[in-house]
């Protein structure tokens, strides 16, 4: 009985090589969660649940916005590793797939092969351009409608936001920095939306201008920053807050440049 108990806790049965392998898998999960925009509490919870399911005694993790330090403990032996996290576009589909993997790992414990295979099969599931561009145009146009723009303003917003989304996708796929992408997209959106001032085409030009750049709102970074700060991850909260504020500032820079262009 005592032997069984020790085995289930994993003390004598996990060699150092196995522990290193487990550490690699767990830190890979944590880095993916950080890169694709999960909140800090989810990162810590999921990686420690996965580590325990794979046979560790416990997982200790230290998060900063650009890197992760992670230690797996098995009895007295510990393995520590550091990984750099690179900036990626937010992808909730990947986060959801990782959550599913962790839950299935808890149901079949100590099965590292299954976890590795499932992690290799994660796919980004991007939405196709022909769908996302008109939908984003329609979203910003709906914003203008909610704020009370007229119908010509609605269509100008639709055009500006659709072109803006195309520009954003094109620049992102060429791996430009996020700040440059946002500034340039805001510039293009504002230039097109300024059409509404041309011979008084739309009587609600200000609403058109303000809603056509709403596709650049950094919703996830702001909400994640607040969630992190409130749950005790102060440095992560500050990091995300700074990132979101920088992005917003760069968008307003683009808007200001475009407005200076036509006045």
């Amino acid at each position: 009985m005592i032997l069984l108990n020790r085995m289930s806790k994993g003390f004598p049965t996990i060699s150092h090589e196995e522990q290193t392998r487990i550490t690699t898998v767990v830190v890979r999960v944590a880095v993916m969660l950080l890169e694709y925009g999960a909140e800090s509490r989810l990162i810590e919870q999921l990686s420690s649940r996965l580590g325990v399911a794979l046979g560790c005694t416990s997982i200790e993790i230290s998060l900063i916005p650009s890197a992760i330090v992670l230690t797996t403990l098995v009895g007295d032996s510990s393995v520590t590793t550091t990984r750099r996290a690179h900036e990626q576009p937010i992808n909730m589909s990947i986060v959801h797939q990782i959550v599913t993997i962790c839950i299935s790992a808890e149901q079949t414990p100590r099965n590292i092969m299954m976890v590795e295979r499932a992690l290799g099969n994660i796919h980004a599931n991007p939405y196709p351009a022909w769908l996302i561009v008109p939908i984003i145009g329609l979203s910003c146009a709906a914003f203008s409608q909610l704020q009370g723009a007229d119908w010509l303003g609605f269509w100008i917003t639709f055009l500006a936001a659709s072109v803006g989304m195309m520009v954003r996708r094109a620049l992102s796929s060429r791996n430009y920095s996020l700040l440059i992408v946002f500034a340039f997209t805001a510039f293009v959106c504002t230039l097109i939306a300024s059409l509404s001032f041309y011979h008084g085409l739309s009587s609600t030009g200000r609403i058109v201008l303000s809603s056509s750049v709403l596709l650049l709102v950094p919703g996830f970074p702001y909400i994640n920053a607040m969630l992190d700060a409130f749950k005790g991850y102060i440095s992560m909260g500050w990091g995300r807050w700074t990132q979101a504020t920088l992005v917003t500032l760069m968008s307003s820079l683009g808007i200001m440049l475009a407005m200076g262009f036509w006045t």
Binding site: M92, S93, I94, I132, C140, L146, L214, F220
Partner: peptide, 19 residues
């Protein structure tokens, strides 16, 4: 207005690449 508000929710869900 609620119907109009549903469109941005879907659109931004697509930007965040929800399942």
């Amino acid at each position: 207005n609620s119907l109009w508000a549903a469109i941005p929710a879907v659109g931004f869900g697509m930007i965040f690449n929800v399942p």
